[in-house]
Structure formats: structure tokens, C-alpha cells
Amino acid sequence: MAQWLRRADLGVLAGRAMQSVIAVILVVGLWERSIAVVVNASLALAITFLPALLRRDWDVHLGTGLTLWMTLAVLLHTVGMLGFYVSVSWWDHVTHTLSATVVASVGYATARAVDEYSDAIYLPSRFLFVYILLFTMAFGVLWEVLEFSARFVTDLVGVEAVLIQFSVEDTIVDLIFDFVGAVLVALFGTPRLQSLVTSLTERLDRVSTG
């Protein structure tokens, strides 16, 4: 028990540290009047509080590992807005892969929870493998459309681009790394998501019983 508490405390400290870095980047963005940095840092900081809100309001526990992984993904994205997306060629690849693993994890856990909750639904492992890939890629395409739309609007009004979008070739590479992240979760990540699946299933049980 003491060892578990120490690990939990370390997880909380790591999460708080990453939140603090994002907050500092937000202040830097405000100081430099960078719309892109401010918008992305604000959204990233809000996302880091999502696990706590789910736990408090819905009694859904993402788990320390997934929470830290999600926080790391948005942190690296926020850092990238300081110029790393442009100056470091592989930065975009890392952030897309990490983000894709988070999306794939949430998509899998949700589908698996519905499968365990309902006797009328049966999702075989092969189907879930394909589902993880399709779900993640669909989200990736949606994100790329959002990037193009945001870039079009900011260029139209003559303000700083909120999201980084270089070219169609860049979009294809982004989707490739989204696919890599989805495959990693489908092959190796699903056993580690069982606690989240259980939490979501219990939530569905409580909702159905009132």
C-alpha cells in the first residue's frame, strides 16, 4: 500500500509539473501577444483538468498512466507552438503519434465498456483491432480538416495562424503517424486500459439503474 501511495504521489507531482509548464507557456504567449500560443496553451491546460472533472462529476477514472500520457501529449503540442514545429523536423511526428495513442485508448476503452455492459453487443478482438485503427484515423482526418479550416480563417482575417499547417504532404505524413499511434495501442496498449474499461462499465451500470 505504501509503495502504491508513493507511485500515486509521484504521478500527481509529475502531472502538476507538466501543468505548470503549460501555464508558464500561456504566460509567455500573453507576454508576447501570440494568439497561437495563448489559444493552444489555454486549450491544453483545460484538457489537463479533464481527468479530475471526469472523476469528480462522473466517477470515471482514467488512471494515472493515461492521465500523464494525455498531459504529456498536450504539453509537447504546446511547446511545439513556441517554434519547435518549425525548427525541429520530427516534433510534429512525435506529437501526432502521442495524441493518436490517447485517442485510440479512449476509443477502445469506450467501445470495450459498451461491449462488457450490454449482453446484446459482442465485439470480437479482430473487430476491435480494426475499430481502433478506423476510429483514430477518422479523428486524425477531422483534426487535419480543422487545421486547414483554422488556417484558412486566420489567413482570411489576417491574423496569426492558431494551428500549424504546412502542406498536403505534411497532412499525409501526419496521418501516417496517427496510424502508427493507433497500431501501437491496438497491438500493445489494450491490456493496460482494463481499469478504464471497468470504470466506464461501472458508470454505465449506475446510469442504467438510476
Rank of each mutant, 00 (worst) to 15 (best):
A113Y: 05
V114T: 08
T64A: 13
A100M: 03
F129C: 03
A111E: 08
G140N: 11
I132W: 06
P124S: 10
V74T: 10
L134Q: 09
F129V: 10
V102F: 15
L98I: 10
D92W: 08
L82H: 02
A150N: 13
V141R: 02
R112F: 07
S149K: 10
V106D: 06
L76N: 00
V88H: 02
T95C: 02
M137C: 07
M137E: 14
V114G: 00
S118L: 12
F84I: 03
T136Q: 12
L134V: 14
H93W: 10
G107Y: 07
S99C: 04
T67N: 11
L66C: 03
H61N: 13
L54C: 01
L82K: 01
F148H: 14
T78I: 04
H93L: 15
F135L: 07
F148E: 07
T64C: 06
F49L: 11
V130E: 09
V106W: 12
S87N: 09
V145R: 10
A111K: 09
Y122F: 10
Y108P: 00
V60M: 03
V114I: 15
Y108M: 02
I121G: 05
L54N: 01
Y85K: 01
L54S: 00
G80K: 05
L123F: 12
H77I: 02
V79T: 10
A100F: 03
V86A: 14
T136W: 13
G63V: 00
G65V: 05
A73K: 07
A100L: 03
W143Q: 12
F148A: 15
L76I: 02
M70H: 09
F127R: 06
D57P: 00
W90L: 08
T71G: 01
L68S: 07
L146T: 15
L142T: 14
L82F: 01
L75M: 10
A150L: 15
Y85A: 01
L50I: 09
A109M: 03
A52S: 14
H96M: 00
L75I: 06
Y122Q: 11
W58T: 01
L76Y: 03
W69T: 13
G63E: 03
W58L: 14
M137I: 14
A120K: 10
R112W: 09
G83D: 04
A113I: 02
V94L: 15
M70D: 07
G65D: 08
L134I: 13
V114D: 04
I132H: 06
A73D: 03
L75G: 02
H96L: 00
F127S: 05
I121D: 05
V114E: 04
L68Y: 09
V141L: 10
D92N: 12
W91P: 02
V74E: 07
S149E: 13
L62S: 02
T71D: 06
V114W: 08
T71A: 08
W58P: 00
D115G: 01
T71Y: 05
G63D: 02
T71H: 05
L75E: 06
L142Q: 13
Y131D: 04
S105C: 08
V60F: 03
